[in-house]
Design a protein around this nucleic acid. Structure first.
Lengths: 141, 141
DNA sequence: GTATTAGTGCAATAATATTGCATTTGTACC
DNA sequence: GGTACAAATGCAATATTATTGCACTAATAC
């Protein structure tokens, strides 16, 4: 998972402003060990005595996803922060069915194979991701 | 993509009833060349002069997904019918960003690699899927 | 054909997402 | 540090998507 600082740096480099809401959302996502929905993010901020309109949260998440700094996880119905290394548009996750915790991993080999497959099917490849549902080590006990 | 008949057969084998709504939803999904949301399915049925309550559609889709006969595509926000061959819980799609059309493909190699990766991370593997966003041959022109 | 119960429809409600516009705030520049 | 400008946020309204409990219907086994 990426450091908030690095994400903010990337925002600036892309010409986006560093605003309080963006700091807050990144902060919450960075703390969480699991995918969070926009309203969950709002709730977690409330616990800290902070407030953000949900519309703002949606817009921040949209921006972060477009920059590959965050990703929406289908299996979990929430958003996670992504590691900068994979910011080229390739994200791979294993999600625990029980507790929702997830791990991101990378694989050049898988990425290359999938891209080749897409091209064979006539597609000009852009982004891809993979999700794996299972039960994590902790929950197996 | 799977034939409706085969899907119905599998339903029966699993002890589920063959009902009109299930036939209808499977029929619509089989016709469509792209992912459909529950309400889109409802609209397409209306065009045929048929009616299904959206709750029913949600429940049918939930069942189909649990049996790996359908899958929810994150990139497209809709459901597609899946080929029976991959009914073990491994689904791979390429989705066109422009027109929404998608292709399902299979790869034993990718499947094995991903499973191994999940196990290395301490997960007992269950289901997985991969989505690839790109631009299809038709839309590239 | 009839009984049983899975499955559906309905109504109400909850949760999630989007839009336009007024207001605020971050940044560049002085 | 102050100011101008545009980007970003908040608000209100609304749209879309999803869920629940319960009464009713219809698929299957016999």
């Amino acid at each position: 998972m990426v450091e908030t600082r690095k994400a903010l740096k990337l925002l600036r480099e892309q010409g986006y402003r560093i605003t309080t809401p963006r700091r807050q959302v990144l902060g919450i996502l960075a703390e969480a060990q699991r995918p969070l929905s926009p309203y969950e993010i709002q709730d977690m901020l409330k616990e800290k005595g902070e407030y953000l309109n949900h519309v703002t949260i949606y817009r921040v998440l949209e921006l972060l996803c477009s920059l590959n700094l965050a990703h929406k996880v289908l299996l979990a119905g929430g958003f996670v922060i992504c590691s900068l290394g994979e910011s080229r548009g390739c994200h791979r996750f294993v999600v625990c069915r029980e507790c929702g915790r997830l791990k991101e991993y990378a694989s050049e080999a898988l990425c290359a194979e999938e891209t080749e497959m897409a091209e064979q099917l006539g597609f000009r490849a852009e982004q891809h991701f993979s999700e794996f549902s299972g039960v994590c080590a902790t929950c197996q006990k």
